[in-house]
Design a protein around this nucleic acid. Sequence first.
DNA 1: ATTTTCAGTGAACATCCGTGCACTGAAAGA
DNA 2: TCTTTCAGTGCACGGATGTTCACTGAAAAT
Lengths: 219, 219
Amino acid sequence: MSSEEKAVTASRPENRQERKERTRRAILDAALEMLAEESFGTLSLRSLTKQVGIVPTAFYRHFATLDELGLSLVDESFMTLRDLIREVRSGEPAPETLIDHSVEVLVAQLETHKAHFRFIGRERHGGNAVLRDAIRHELGMFERELATDLARMPGLERWGAADLHVLASLFVDLMVAAAGELVSPSAEQPPVRRQLVDNLRNQARMIVVGAAGWKPLEP
Amino acid sequence: MSSEEKAVTASRPENRQERKERTRRAILDAALEMLAEESFGTLSLRSLTKQVGIVPTAFYRHFATLDELGLSLVDESFMTLRDLIREVRSGEPAPETLIDHSVEVLVAQLETHKAHFRFIGRERHGGNAVLRDAIRHELGMFERELATDLARMPGLERWGAADLHVLASLFVDLMVAAAGELVSPSAEQPPVRRQLVDNLRNQARMIVVGAAGWKPLEP
DNA sequence: ATTTTCAGTGAACATCCGTGCACTGAAAGA
DNA sequence: TCTTTCAGTGCACGGATGTTCACTGAAAAT
């Protein structure tokens, strides 16, 4: 009984930087877990490191400040968000099944990375200005990427930047709002969950109908 | 130089319950002010009462717990939200100017009661479960009220409950998202602000176009 | 074989926190 | 006039917080 490693397979020696990376991941995961029930502002360094299983001061070997940890969480949260549209894009752009497919992928990704979406939704308007600004910036970029994607779609080729911005921001707002709902504990119950997803699908459809009947703004 | 009352006019004696009510308001106002820069979870009773100008323990003469203070803030925040639709309703329901008028009223109300909207937006997905649930409940009621309002509008008389829910939730999501943006410090600059308001107006218009072309779901 | 690096340790610190308790003094009630 | 009520006071406590500093011991470099 030499040690209590988590790996079941006879664990190989493990590098020094490998071990460091493992602790760093443990910190990020512990933070994501704790942030399900509190906000970043109330997260204390002591309780976090206790959860990880290290001493408080060891935290500083991986992050200079708590804010830096938060920014890392923003980064990886938006990576899973980009995975989302990449997966939507990789499927066929069949115009009629696109909405249903997108909603399906969103719900799946949201289930797999619930903590990331909850973090974004919670800190987007939260008490920490650094995280707020970082999330606002990332969401802005995300919206612009979505706008360029939309520009390629049939029927939208002649739309101006302003029109594309209107539509993209509608979709982003919708996605953020839906994520916020689906992440809450009340959405654990399948009937409630189904109702929320159905509503999301219909909301997206109504927006699409609006886009189809939209009369572009500028010349 | 008897005392330092805030009233410029020779202040009348002031009742006992009047004085209590005044302190209560001072607590609520101090909280709203501090919550512009932190979240409810990080608000400490000591710093709050220091800002008010009373001793920490005096707080308990007005609220049993901090959560109770938060619930009072939820209550009065949603009162200003109800004032909003009441004012929109009180105007004429002229179908063509309705959107512009609504946006205008929203922006005005948002400017007058910025702290209330910020509070709702910040704590809606915040770390405090009691406030989250209270806000979710109030927003649900608000959405249902909006749905019954919409049911009376020309073109929507034959819509089912599900369709009305879709449209109402779209408007609520849009309003919440816009409020969150307009309340942020970057929206202080007039050009940014104008851009946000313009986009909001266009988003609302696109949704209306979608509603106009919507084909009701059930029989 | 020896030295250097460095993730993690453990004690100590000053500061802030919520809350219990006995109190004061003026307004309200008798 | 005398008594009761009660918003606000002042102190004291036990506990949690972030950060400092010198340290240990194994891995990496020499």
